[in-house]
Design a protein around this nucleic acid. Structure first.
Lengths: 183, 183
DNA sequence: AGGATCATGTAACCGGTTACATGATTAC
DNA sequence: GTAATCATGTAACCGGTTACATGATCCT
């Protein structure tokens, strides 16, 4: 139940609407957890029933009213229960359909494969740049505003960047091997 | 619809039962795609209705009869349609609840965090060994029996190993940084 | 004029997980 | 004895995706 925990975690920084939660998912933890609006609204509904969050309407003129959610004490302890309870097995589920296609690559043409590896490299490069901008914006705000969180945001973003650099290296090696191989 | 494609891909090597498909998922592509038995049986049922596969009962004595599935021509072309149709965006979905916990790590104790990073490293190390054994067994059989597939199986396993080595390095760096930091 | 942004949701569907059901043989 | 292996499935549930619905303001 990690969508729930993600929402509670973000709400632990302060009250938010469904819409603004979606933006935070996209902009700050999108590289490690994604969520759609409909999912967020549904989860907010069930969490309010359970008493993990409370809502209040903030009336606005010239744009739709806001429903602002605040985390309750039960919500905080529910979040901490999840946070401190690491699962025995720390591996995340692997379902990667790019890799599945490569696994069955012998049924593809060499040229097509190389083209796809090149697209792959391009996309990962762009993603690294995006993450570096995110990291830089955290670093800029610095310890004064973000506080103790900075080091952990650096950790997670760092892992993403390092992994991307590795898969780029891997894809380059694949291209070289493919070019040398006679298929 | 990649579970379907995974099954069709495996059936393209030869007829199989639901049970033996499960074993192949676990033993050869488990590191890039997982599937449960109930999922496989359900998918086999719908695929037979669609005409992608055909089944025949193989009677056995002293153990349950087998229902052996064979890929049809429609099945083959459905598989190739999927295989050649790479999506525009090659990124796989990221939902990693270990990372989510690290992101909110400022609410955890330093000692607990280090312990979890150490568990993480141990598990990844073990997984590398498992993959290396898998790779070695492919390599052993060699080009003569596996043929053109070998290079692609090496590619996919290689990526997994390289990524694991990277995340181990990352986790070690995190531990060092954590030990030096005063939280 | 047309699309993005702000803001809320519902409904249907689809794929993955968990639990249940059955039952013989083989290996420790 | 008991756990693993062989072999098939069904049913319920749960979480994620896609489509639908509404409507004003702001920017190009």
């Amino acid at each position: 139940m990690s969508l729930r925990s993600g929402i509670l975690g973000l709400l632990s920084y302060g009250p938010k609407t469904g819409y603004s939660l979606k933006k935070e998912f996209d902009q700050s933890i999108g590289y490690l957890w994604t969520a759609s609006l409909s999912q967020i609204y549904r989860e907010l509904g069930t969490m309010e029933k359970k008493g993990y969050i409370r809502s209040s309407i903030e009336v606005q003129e010239d744009r739709p009213d806001k429903k602002v959610y605040t985390i309750t004490d039960e919500g905080k302890s529910e979040f901490l229960r999840w946070l401190t309870d690491f699962p025995d097995n720390l591996s995340s589920v692997k379902r990667d359909d790019f890799m599945l296609r490569i696994f069955f690559g012998s049924q593809l043409k060499k040229g097509e494969l190389i083209k796809q590896f090149e697209r792959f490299i391009e996309q990962k490069k762009n993603y690294i740049e995006l993450l570096n901008r995110l990291l830089a914006s955290h670093e800029e705000k610095g310890i004064k505003t973000i506080g103790k969180d900075l080091i952990f945001w650096r950790f997670t973003a760092k892992r993403a960047v390092m992994t991307l650099e590795t898969v780029i290296k891997w894809a380059r090696e694949c291209i070289t091997e493919l070019e040398e191989a006679d298929l």
